[in-house]
Amino acid sequence: MDDTDQALISALRHDARASLSDLAAGLGVSRTTVRSRIERLQRSGDIVGFSVVLKGDAARDPVRGLMMLGIEGRGTDRILRQLGGQSAVRATHTTNGRWDIIVEIGAPTLEEFDRVLSQIRRMDGIVSSETSLLLSTRKSAGRDG
């Protein structure tokens, strides 16, 4: 994955419904390039889908974040089961690259969010983590490619 792919993914994370023309203009490449790169990233499994965030989801969880986890050895399945038992865990994703698991977390307060992070960090087999708070979620309506 090169810098253009990374920039394309970043643009899609910001607005997954952006038109090919808008994406191409923002990246300084042609529409054909954008289309072929999206298709290639989907075929390779780097992009596995697109999602919608509902206003109700954001209202339920005023504090949301992504926690990336590095797992020691072969403990991924066990840790995924433990994460599944956490009420604040909205989704778990296995991934490639630097992090083994990405955890979507939602909580009513920063204090509760911090408590959940502490619980997860203490799980046996987690050797590293990085967490990013989700500050805002933007989706555009009515655009097509």
Score class of each variant (00 low, 15 high):
105 I>N: 02
115 R>E: 07
138 R>T: 09
129 S>I: 05
135 L>Q: 12
136 S>A: 11
140 S>D: 04
130 E>Y: 02
122 R>A: 15
137 T>I: 03
144 D>I: 13
114 D>M: 11
127 V>E: 15
140 S>C: 01
141 A>R: 00
116 V>Y: 01
129 S>W: 11
120 I>N: 03
130 E>K: 09
138 R>F: 03
126 I>L: 10
103 V>F: 03
134 L>P: 00
141 A>F: 03
104 E>S: 09
107 A>L: 09
134 L>T: 00
129 S>Y: 10
103 V>G: 05
104 E>N: 01
127 V>H: 07
126 I>R: 10
128 S>P: 02
139 K>E: 05
117 L>D: 02
119 Q>I: 08
137 T>C: 02
133 L>Y: 12
142 G>E: 03
128 S>N: 00
105 I>G: 04
103 V>T: 03
138 R>D: 05
131 T>R: 07
122 R>C: 13
141 A>D: 00
119 Q>L: 06
135 L>H: 10
104 E>W: 06
108 P>Y: 07
123 M>Y: 10
113 F>H: 05
130 E>Q: 07
123 M>D: 13
130 E>I: 05
128 S>E: 11
138 R>Q: 11
103 V>C: 01
118 S>T: 15
144 D>V: 11
109 T>F: 08
134 L>R: 06
113 F>Y: 01
112 E>H: 14
143 R>P: 06
102 I>P: 02
132 S>E: 04
128 S>F: 03
113 F>A: 02
106 G>C: 08
112 E>N: 14
122 R>L: 14
130 E>C: 04
107 A>W: 01
102 I>M: 08
138 R>A: 03
104 E>I: 09
142 G>L: 06
111 E>H: 10
103 V>Q: 01
137 T>A: 03
128 S>L: 04
108 P>K: 08
129 S>M: 07
113 F>D: 02
140 S>L: 04
120 I>W: 07
131 T>F: 00
122 R>Y: 12
119 Q>M: 10
109 T>H: 06
132 S>A: 11
113 F>P: 08
115 R>T: 14
118 S>K: 15
105 I>L: 11
119 Q>Y: 09
102 I>W: 00
120 I>P: 12
128 S>H: 00
105 I>P: 00
136 S>D: 01
138 R>H: 12
144 D>T: 12
131 T>H: 12
135 L>D: 06
136 S>E: 05
117 L>P: 14
105 I>Y: 02
144 D>Q: 12
104 E>R: 07
136 S>I: 05
130 E>T: 11
120 I>A: 03
138 R>L: 08
111 E>R: 05
128 S>R: 02
141 A>S: 08
107 A>G: 03
125 G>V: 05
105 I>A: 05
114 D>L: 13
131 T>Q: 12
107 A>V: 09
120 I>E: 02
103 V>K: 01
121 R>H: 15
122 R>D: 15
128 S>C: 01
114 D>N: 14
123 M>L: 14
141 A>G: 02
117 L>I: 13
129 S>T: 12
107 A>F: 04
108 P>Q: 13
